[in-house]
Amino acid sequence: MAATREAGEAAWTEGEGRQFCSLHPVPRRIFPAGVTPMRERLINLFGNKWVTGTVLHYTFFDRDTDGENVVLDNGQTAFVPWRGSEGEKQVVRSAFEVWAQQGIGVRFEEVSEREEAEIRIGFMRGDGAWSWLGREILDHASPNERTMNFGWNIAAPGELDTAIHEIGHTLGFPHEHQNPKAGIEWDEEAVYQDLARPPNEWDRDKTWWNIIRKLDPGEVEGTTWDADSVMHYPFKRGLIRKPEAFFVNGLQPAGGLSEKDRNWVRTLYPPTDDASAPLLRPAQSVLVELAPGQQRDFRVAPQETRFYDFRTFGASDSVMVLFENDNGQLRYRTGDDDSGEDLNASFRIKLFKGRQYVLRIRMYHSDRRDQTAVMMW
């Protein structure tokens, strides 16, 4: 996580260790032989991102029974709670607000019932700071499973960026220091040794996954590296061989969202206006005409209660998601992602007369923009 300059720079100057975020390793996606490199790159870039207009609900673990038993160095076990202080919760709320203030088309809403939350936040000491990346959290849907954790006191001065960083992961943003366009040449053994010491105490596999490993070019946006990104770790002197300036001085992000962070999240998640979305009618084929990363929304107002089929048509990779308008709140109902497959996104669902729905389609890749369509029947 990027520390603020006031707090983080002082820690490095004094030579103190800094605790880092650690993402969970996930297997690299293997595509069928017929998937072209360009198609693979676009799927990797957009595949874990949310559709614009999504409302992400978050909650905090707060029951006395929330936690787990861990084995101590002496072989005994101890119960470690997942609950955090009110001050820590407020820091996380403030971090959500930092992202929301960018005017993006993703909203964050705190809920008390964990069954309603996509983002479930714990404060388990000693378990590090982490989040699943973007829509990976949907693979961890148990209401009693964390999707984000803060393993130290983030109510301490200078820790707001820790929470902003983890929410960035939830939005689908990887670590910027692993950007292959950065041209970073590590002193790998120095990095392994430094991260093996307190306060991180990482093994070599965790250090490789979160620092040394270069991301696939298809996983990162743009053509330049952003050393000031909130998704960038700070590094002390002696860990980076090249660029040489960072070997001598270390690398300290400026703190908070960088200009590139702001521009990218606004580009990826532009605001939506569901009221102006066209109405999708049964047995009506509509061209979507989307470039990679673009999205189109439709209103759905069934005139009878029955099962309906939804499907995209054309040589494309897309994700299609249906929400129901529940007293002004959009609730996820179903969705399908056909990326990397010789299929089209489709689902069948029972809709009810008099209720209002919103269908969202986000394009990863299309062979012909003018030949991709959607239809319900």
Rank of each mutant, 00 (worst) to 15 (best):
D326E: 13
F235N: 01
Y233K: 07
E341H: 09
H365A: 13
D342M: 10
E189L: 10
E259I: 02
K206G: 06
E324K: 11
A283K: 06
D338K: 09
D342I: 05
D161M: 01
T13F: 08
M38T: 15
R83L: 11
I240S: 01
W82Y: 15
D309H: 03
W202D: 04
S339I: 03
T372R: 10
L290H: 06
R355N: 12
M124Y: 01
A277N: 03
G151P: 06
F323K: 03
L133P: 02
R83N: 13
D336W: 09
V51G: 07
G134N: 12
F20Y: 05
H177Q: 11
F96N: 09
V220E: 08
N179E: 12
V106R: 05
E110F: 04
F298T: 07
T59P: 01
E221Q: 11
M1S: 10
T267W: 13
W132P: 02
A156W: 01
R28Q: 08
T52Q: 13
D336E: 11
F79Y: 14
L322E: 11
A117W: 03
F235V: 00
H232K: 05
V71S: 13
G53Y: 09
L343G: 02
T162W: 01
R39D: 14
R281N: 10
L343C: 04
W202E: 09
I137M: 13
E289A: 10
P278G: 05
N144M: 12
T77G: 09
V220W: 06
W202T: 00
T372Y: 04
E159Q: 14
T372P: 01
P270E: 05
I211H: 10
D297C: 03
E136A: 05
E68C: 14
Q178H: 05
A163F: 04
L359E: 04
D309M: 00
D274C: 00
R120V: 06
A196G: 15
V106G: 03
T4V: 04
A345K: 02
M148H: 10
D187Y: 06
S318F: 00
A33L: 09
F235Q: 01
Y308V: 00
P157H: 07
I167P: 07
E40W: 02
T54E: 14
T267R: 12
R355I: 01
M375E: 15
V26E: 02
H140E: 12
E159P: 01
N48D: 15
A254L: 11
R306P: 00
A156Q: 13
F307L: 09
G250H: 07
T267L: 08
A3F: 13
P271M: 06
F313R: 12
V288K: 02
A245C: 04
N144G: 12
G75V: 14
H232S: 13
Y332N: 12
A10Q: 13
Q178V: 08
N74I: 08
M363E: 13
D194Y: 11
E221Y: 14
T334G: 09
D342A: 12
P282W: 00
G67I: 13
Q356I: 08
E159L: 01
F310D: 13
D161L: 03
Q178E: 11
E244P: 00
L351T: 10
E189C: 05
E185A: 11
D274Q: 03
F313K: 09
Q371C: 08
L42W: 05
S316K: 00
